[in-house]
Simulated assay, not measured.
Amino acid sequence: MQKKHAALGLVLSAIARAAAAEDAAQANNPLANMTAFNLQNYYIGDLSGFEDSANQFWVRYAQPFSVGKTDWIFRGSLPINSFPITPAGGQKTGTGDLNMFAAYLIDVGNPDVSFGIGPQITAPTASKKELGSEKWSAGLVNVLFDASSHKFQYGYLLTWEASFAGSSNRSSVNAAAFQPFAFYQLGGGTYLRSTPIWSYNFQNDAYSIPIGLGIGQVVRRGHTVFNFFLEPQVSVASRGQGQPEWQVFFGMNMQFTK
């Protein structure tokens, strides 16, 4: 009887380890088939052309949904910005522009690989004109996440948008961003991460190319997977005013399992 209990304990322990590894592998998947709520922050210590620092706090919500026999992911993101308004100083704080996208999930023949593409739209919801574009913009998103390995996951988020309506006194929007991401699992829910966003503004030929290296911890509590992380990032190339020279990205992501 003791041997049976010991064998059962080993089986349950193996199942628990496998579940924990799956949680860790999927914790950073933007296309994971579960509802998610994220609180993320960029503290920008050095902004090119400005003496003051800046801060951008993001509230993000993601929800899977279906249209007929097709599967999609909706994500909405609203920033709370605190930016200098002149090179010499002075800050404005308030909500920024609301971004939303819907990615159609394409079956690539591997259940561990998520691939999505779809439309996005940005609404001029900024509470102060200095904190947003005052433009309606639309474009496309493309996302890939490969969790074939429980040790190393990688992928990217590619976005592009251009303005089509809004204030005639403001510059048009025509911008793209590429976010490569990589996650290396150390065990016990702890992992190394790199998720910089490389951006390019076609309107004024400005760009920013940071690199980052940070650490995260994934913890499950009941039906919720918590993902805490801290990732310093530094620019290796940039052009134009208002580009982050260095910043610290940190936050908490929550996934709600069924």
Rank of each mutant, 00 (worst) to 15 (best):
Q185C: 08
A175E: 12
T195H: 14
S167C: 10
A103S: 08
F250G: 11
Q153F: 01
S235L: 09
Q217N: 08
T95C: 05
P196C: 09
N253P: 00
I80K: 02
N227H: 00
D112Q: 06
N169H: 14
A182Y: 06
P232L: 10
T125C: 12
N28M: 09
I44N: 01
S167F: 08
V143C: 00
Q40W: 08
G89T: 00
A175D: 11
K69D: 13
W246E: 15
A19R: 05
K258N: 08
P119G: 02
F50L: 14
V67I: 14
L158Y: 05
K69P: 02
L158W: 06
S199C: 03
I85P: 02
P180I: 05
Y61P: 10
A16P: 06
Q255G: 11
P180M: 12
F228V: 13
A14Y: 13
F37A: 11
T195Q: 11
D97Y: 09
G96M: 09
P64Y: 11
Q241W: 02
P84H: 10
A126E: 14
R221Y: 09
V141C: 05
A182E: 04
Q91W: 00
G212N: 12
A165N: 15
R170M: 14
Q243C: 01
T70Q: 15
A25V: 01
Q185V: 04
G251Y: 12
F65G: 08
V11M: 14
F249H: 11
F249S: 14
L31Q: 03
A27L: 03
R75D: 14
N110K: 10
N253M: 02
F74Q: 06
V108T: 13
V67P: 00
T95P: 09
T257Y: 03
